[in-house]
Amino acid sequence: MFEQAPIYARLVEEQGDVPAQVRQEAERIEDDLRRTMQPLRNLSEHAARQGRPPTHLMP
């Protein structure tokens, strides 16, 4: 869609493909967040299987 718009092609030439860069950065952040949150998710699921509240989430 955008590739056919001359103004978009000009902006990409001048500024780079900003939407693609943003998308790539968002994917990297999502991957980092997934890796960071996985241990917490595992603890919560383990506590739920044992019928205990996830105390590590309580204030």
Results as ranks from 00 to 15, higher is better:
Val22Arg: 10
Val18Glu: 01
Glu27Ala: 14
Asp31Thr: 13
Gly16Phe: 12
Gly16Trp: 12
Gly51Asn: 04
Asp32Glu: 15
Gln50Thr: 06
Arg49His: 10
Met58Arg: 15
Glu25Ile: 07
Ala26Gln: 12
Ser44Gln: 14
Val22Trp: 05
Asp32Val: 09
Pro54Gln: 02
Glu13Ser: 14
Val22Gln: 10
Ala48Arg: 15
Glu13Pro: 06
Leu11Val: 03
Ala9Leu: 02
Pro39Val: 04
Arg41Thr: 12
Glu3Thr: 11
Ala5Ile: 05
Arg49Ile: 03
Asp32Ser: 15
Glu30Tyr: 06
Gln21Val: 06
Pro39Ser: 09
Tyr8Lys: 04
Pro39Cys: 08
Asn42Ala: 15
Glu30Gly: 13
Met37Ile: 10
Ile29Val: 13
Pro54Lys: 01
Ala26Gly: 02
Leu11Arg: 07
Tyr8Ser: 04
Gly51Met: 05
Ile29Pro: 02
Pro19Lys: 01
Ala47Ser: 14
Glu14Trp: 10
Gln24Trp: 00
Ile29Gly: 04
Ala5Asp: 12
Glu45Ala: 14
Ala9His: 02
Leu57Gly: 15
His56Lys: 03
Asp32Lys: 14
Glu30Ile: 02
Glu25Cys: 04
Pro39Asn: 11
Leu33Tyr: 03
Arg34Thr: 12
Gln15Cys: 10
Met37Lys: 08
Pro54Thr: 08
Leu11His: 12
Ala20Phe: 07
Pro59Asp: 13
Thr55Ala: 08
Tyr8Gly: 01
Thr36Ala: 15
Pro6Ile: 01
Asn42Pro: 00
Arg41Lys: 07
Arg35Gly: 11
Ala5Cys: 08
Pro53Trp: 02
Arg52Trp: 05
Met37Asn: 11
Leu43Phe: 09
Leu11Trp: 08
Pro54Cys: 06
Asp31Ser: 13
Gly51Cys: 02
Met37Gly: 03
Glu27Lys: 05
Leu57Ser: 10
Glu13Ala: 15
Ala5His: 12
Phe2Pro: 13
Glu27Trp: 00
Glu45Gln: 12
Glu25Met: 13
Glu45Pro: 00
Pro19Gly: 04
Glu3Arg: 13
His46Thr: 06
Asp32Ile: 12
Glu14His: 05
Gln50Tyr: 04
Asp17Met: 02
Pro54Leu: 02
Pro6Asn: 05
